[in-house]
């Protein structure tokens, strides 16, 4: 037996990502002075495609960047937007940080909990919504604000929130 394991590789050439994303990754790694710089964008794009960063995605990204799986996990676990488990189709992220809090952010979060019947970092049983209490999202002057996936929604009230959730729910059906 030999310890001289050079890397733990999936078969080179094959990919778990869509052809478009794989092509994007091929390009991405050439943009930077060092390949590793592409890591965080790659993790995000992988998550966007798969819904979370799966073990297979980690392994492939590690291979593409010539990193170890441990390296990737070290970085991945640092960033709060990256996750290693699937969540709902729409991730409702309610900001409760100071500017939002003083304009009803926490009440909005409580409202969402009741309305969706789930708590922080939980997903509805139909898999449509996940809920998360988040830190400041950079919409302080338009508080309270909510992000659903990457979309911002500002100046919300519980009523507006209900309408928004309804809108997403009907979108999910399509």
């Amino acid at each position: 037996m030999s310890l001289t394991k050079i890397s733990e590789n999936p078969k080179p050439g094959s990919t778990i990502f869509s052809p478009e994303l794989a092509a994007r990754f091929d390009k991405l790694v050439t943009l930077y002075p060092v390949r590793r710089s592409a890591l965080i964008p790659m993790l995000l794009y992988a998550q966007d495609e798969i819904g979370y960063v799966s073990d297979a995605a980690i392994a492939e990204i590690a291979q593409r960047l010539d990193l170890t799986v441990l390296d990737v996990r070290n970085v991945l676990s640092y960033y709060s937007m990256l996750r290693t488990n699937p969540i709902g189709k729409y991730n409702v992220q309610v900001c409760t940080n100071i500017s939002c809090m003083v304009r009803g952010g926490q009440e909005l979060f409580q409202h969402c909990k009741k309305r969706l019947g789930i708590g922080h970092k939980q997903t509805t049983s139909d898999g449509i919504f996940s809920l998360e209490e988040v830190e400041c999202i950079g919409a302080c002057s338009w508080a309270p604000a909510v992000q659903v996936n990457y979309d911002f929604h500002e100046n919300l009230t519980p009523e507006a929130m209900d309408a928004l959730l309804d809108e997403y729910r009907s979108k999910a059906g399509q």
Partner: peptide, 9 residues
């Protein structure tokens, strides 16, 4: 060997 890392924050 790099068998140890730092995770989370």
């Amino acid at each position: 060997v790099a068998a140890l890392g730092i995770q989370q924050r």
